[in-house]
Computed example of a mutant assay.
Amino acid sequence: MTTSETPDSRQDGPEAAVSRLKAEAAHRLAARHRVDLVPAELAAAAGVDPALVDARFPDRDALLTDLVLAAYHAMGDAAEQGAAEAEKSGADLLGRWVACCEGVRAWALARPEEYVLIWGRPVPGYDAPPETMAAGARTVLVLLGLVREALEAGELAVDHVPAPELSEGMARTIEPLAQGMLNGLPTPVITRMLIVWTQLHGMVGFEVNGHIAGVAADPAAFFTHAATAMGQYIGLPH
């Protein structure tokens, strides 16, 4: 028996051995998502006074929360600025919707690690405090504002696209939305809003993570087309 052999590996058939190998690989891939942000170690690496770091960030979670809040607010700034600039240029509701989405995309591509921090796989062992939810809502509130503006003006299409009947599970999904942030919107609009919100971050995440090159010859043109289609789907006038 050589030193590289173990009793288990000797008893494995080829397929069992490969399965064990792949399981170990998957375990190591999962470890990529562990975040090493011990404030004291970061202070030493960055040449920062440890006392200053201790006062500001007593532990890893405090530092993570600061980073998460900053990322959400930066994304919110980009979304709000995009919509505001489009409005100043005379864009209609759909144009402002697209500009808001494009603002999110532009920020995410410029700051991919910050985007992945808030929209990628959750950091193991970290529970984001409630204030991060409020910061994260800024972007969706821009989009919702446009939807409400169209509704109040009588310009929002409500039943313009066919939709399946709500299952019991889907009804439970939208109920808290209807009682919260999306209060007052028609049920079909609430369901579509949930769909387009996940679609937006699906598209942005697809590009941020390097999967768009083999799909779209012009990623920016594709995104604008898709964002426009999402605005039409939600019911904005066009």
Results as ranks from 00 to 15, higher is better:
S4F: 14
E5S: 14
E5A: 14
P7C: 02
D8S: 12
S9V: 13
R10H: 06
G13E: 01
E15Q: 03
A16Y: 00
A17F: 06
V18K: 10
K22I: 00
E24N: 09
E24D: 12
R28I: 09
L29V: 01
A31M: 10
A31D: 10
H33F: 13
R34M: 15
D36N: 07
D36W: 09
L37R: 06
P39G: 01
P39K: 04
L42K: 02
A45F: 10
G47Y: 04
A51N: 03
A51M: 03
L52C: 04
A55Q: 07
P58Q: 01
R60T: 14
D61F: 05
A62P: 00
T65A: 00
D66C: 03
L67V: 14
L69W: 07
L69F: 02
A71S: 09
Y72S: 05
A79V: 15
E80S: 13
Q81W: 03
Q81I: 10
G82E: 04
E85N: 09
E85C: 01
E85H: 04
A86S: 07
L94E: 03
R96L: 05
A99Y: 06
W107K: 06
E113Y: 01
Y115S: 01
V116K: 00
V116S: 02
V123A: 15
G125M: 09
G125H: 11
T132K: 11
M133E: 14
R138D: 07
L141S: 04
G145W: 01
G145C: 00
A150T: 08
L151F: 12
E152A: 13
A153V: 00
A153I: 01
G154I: 06
E155K: 15
V158T: 00
V161T: 15
G169I: 09
M170N: 11
M170H: 07
M170Q: 15
T173Y: 14
G184S: 11
P186Y: 04
V189Q: 03
V189C: 08
M193S: 11
M193K: 07
L200R: 13
M203Q: 08
V204G: 05
E207S: 09
V208A: 07
G210C: 11
H211Q: 15
A213D: 15
A213I: 07
A213R: 12
G214N: 13
A220P: 01
A220Y: 02
T224H: 00
T228D: 09
T228F: 06
A229M: 08
G231K: 08
L236P: 12
P237Y: 09
